[in-house]
């Protein structure tokens, strides 16, 4: 294979722009390893002269931080599982089952997609207040469990499944749920994985709902936690950056594993939120 000069040239240019682009991340990581005295040294010490990484992360990871982390992990996993299941059920119903009013219902779902989430925020709060779901994890999980975009995406995948598979399930005497669970769902596993990864990322990063619906500090998620942390350690930037690194880390791991799925999922139809 010949290396094209123009291609190599553009690769170098793009790499330079790319470095500039992720510089904030590099700075964050490098600062989280430094002792506080070196944070604002100029010119910037990209590779710290005095390593303070272990002490920084130990300080961050003592106290409440572990709790916030744990809260986020289990809320995110529970939300993702419930959300994917609810969306997959609806997607299957809308694409593979015939029933009266199906298309009308789907149009309603489409119409509701136009409603910005914040337009329903205040009555949602009043409703949850009345149902005593404010300041509970159950309430937070419930808020993120229903997604129109998820139903759209999974419906697209189900439409790619041939009806013969579904019919064969019926022939074998499997009920509707078993056909869905044991035949249709496994066939769209890559699609489910794509959506689940996106949902995980979106839920982990959710800030608005926890901010409004959680009051007690011990219930906080990591996003509220690092915010609080910022207030607490206000001027200790090395610790703040260690906190930020910790909050992003699970996303980087998930993204590293499912990078292809995430990018494919996003390209699929431009899904967002």
């Amino acid at each position: 294979m010949r290396i094209s000069i123009s291609k190599a040239f553009w690769t170098v240019i793009m790499a330079l722009i790319g470095i500039l682009f992720i510089l904030p991340f590099v700075w964050m990581l490098s600062t989280s390893f430094k002792s506080e005295a070196d944070v604002f040294k100029f010119p910037i010490e990209w590779i710290p002269k005095h390593w303070n990484a272990i002490e920084n992360f130990r300080t961050v990871w003592s106290g409440q931080f572990v709790r916030y982390y744990w809260n986020s992990i289990y809320i995110t996993i529970a939300t993702t599982v419930i959300n994917v299941f609810v969306c997959a059920l609806a997607a299957y119903g809308f694409s593979k089952l015939r029933f009266w009013g199906r298309d009308a219902m789907f149009v309603l779902v489409l119409a509701l997609y136009m409603v910005p989430p914040q337009a329903s925020l205040v009555p949602q709060f009043l409703l949850f207040n009345w149902m005593q779901l404010i300041d509970t994890h159950a309430g937070l999980i419930l808020l993120n469990s229903f997604s129109i975009i998820g139903a759209f995406m999974l419906k697209q995948f189900f439409m790619g499944v041939h009806d013969e598979y579904i019919e064969s399930g019926k022939m074998d005497g499997a009920g509707y749920f078993r056909t869905f669970w044991q035949i249709a769902l496994p066939l769209i596993r890559p699609g489910v994985a794509t959506y689940a990864i996106l949902r995980f990322i979106w839920t982990w990063n959710d800030y608005q709902y926890p901010l409004i619906f959680l009051k007690s500090k011990e219930l906080f998620t990591i996003q509220l936690g690092i915010r609080l942390f910022g207030d607490q350690y206000g001027d200790v930037y090395s610790l703040m950056m260690a906190g930020a690194v910790s909050a992003i880390l699970p996303l980087l791991i998930i993204f590293a594993i499912g990078q292809k799925q995430v990018i494919e999922g996003i390209s699929l139809g431009g899904v967002k939120g």
Partner: peptide, 28 residues
């Protein structure tokens, strides 16, 4: 039977959207 199954499949999402989006928007 297929009709009933269909309603049951879409019910969780539709209920969720009804309670968390449609009614709140009208409420707003």
């Amino acid at each position: 039977r297929e009709r009933i199954a269909g309603y049951l499949f879409v019910a969780p999402l539709m209920l969720g959207l009804l309670v968390l989006t449609l009614i709140p928007v009208i409420g707003s």
